[in-house]
Write a protein that binds this DNA or RNA. Structure first.
Lengths: 196, 196
DNA sequence: GTCGAACCGGAACGAGGTTCCGTTTGCCTC
DNA sequence: GAGGCAAACGGAACCTCGTTCCGGTTCGAC
């Protein structure tokens, strides 16, 4: 919404087209490097892959976190938008919640190191943390409320807490065949069901 | 068991007593700094607190992970030993499991940053990871098996997976009042119960 | 064609973990 | 008690990584 990219209308904000081109190149390079080496790949690697200097990265993205956000923004938004859709099409609110969480877990688990960075208390990743929370917590809350209203689950858990828990469970889920985050998340969601 | 400290008999391995004294000083300083600044405190801070050079730290503890292990070894061992005891004194194996997990969570949650470092895929923390696993997974497996045998819980979850999940849930539990790891772990354990 | 603003690359800085090496010190022998 | 030497010490130096800064370059409006 703020300063970003291919915009409404046709006149993008950046006056100079080399700058716009570099931003695209950078996003592509970052995406590729993240897939290959994980989200914590050195900035210099991304700069090298894009064929630019590190200064160029920092002009377009004030901090590593902003670059990560930019790379994943579309997918996070898609996940957020899937929430209401699932609620409308699923048999029960609880089923919708389960499917949505599963979507989120799939996303996190396939992004090497993202979950870890998300929960890192490293200042500097705060904007990343905040972006995910701003975008996803309201959706989660909506699903949670619906399921609670229908009486399927207990109602004493905040969406924020659930999102953090799920995010935490996804840490290190790649790179360890013995650890299946999906299963544990399912267990957690199962534990949410109201005993009847 | 290997090269450590106050030993069987009276003749400790280290020939020189300044070395032994320094090791103790270092352990005390590290413990204090960990409490004050978290487990990820800079090595230089610990050295300064102990009044020694960083070289001295690295001679006694080949890597940061080894220092962390040394500081918490006693508590981890105590937790491991509590497992069989709880199994013997609790009403049901499931109750024992719950209490033991709660012990573990309390330990992790009160050690600023430990849980995060435990799951970090940072090479260099592998020995730390391995120590916790070696020490605690067998105990957890014993409790899990007992609870499964008694029919209280499903039996398709490995102790390793449960320990990692619980460890993950504890990440960032301090320093965030809105996140209560204990509750989520309880939910997870609740999700484990066999539907009857 | 000219000129200034925007942009670029990469050297430089600071922080943190780890290594290296010249110096100091405990202990054993004579 | 003196001498010798291996062990231990301290901290400067090195490496990696995120971020900042600045002199040079390029775009595009006039």
């Amino acid at each position: 919404m703020n300063d970003s990219d291919e915009g409404a209308g046709h006149a993008a904000q950046s006056k100079r087209k080399d700058a716009r081109r570099n931003k695209e190149t950078l996003l592509d390079a970052a995406a590729a490097v993240f897939v290959a080496s994980g989200v914590e790949a050195p900035v210099r690697d991304i700069a090298a892959k894009a064929g630019v200097g590190v200064g160029t990265i920092y002009r377009h993205f004030p901090t590593r976190a902003d670059l990560i956000i930019a790379v994943y923004r579309h997918q996070v938004d898609a996940c957020a938008e899937a929430g209401p859709a699932l609620l409308a099409t699923s048999a029960t609110p609880h089923a919708a919640l389960g499917q949505w969480i599963s979507l989120f877990v799939d996303f996190l688990v396939t992004k090497h190191g993202l979950a870890a960075v998300l929960q890192s208390d490293n200042a500097g990743f705060e904007t990343l943390h905040a972006y995910f929370l701003d975008r996803l917590v309201p959706v989660c809350a909506q699903l949670l409320d619906a399921a609670a209203d229908s009486g399927e689950i207990r109602s004493d858990l905040e969406a924020y807490e659930l999102m953090r828990g799920v995010g935490n469970l996804c840490i290190g889920a790649d790179s360890d065949p013995r650890y299946d985050a999906r299963r544990l998340v399912e267990l957690l969601i199962a534990g949410l069901r109201r005993p009847h």
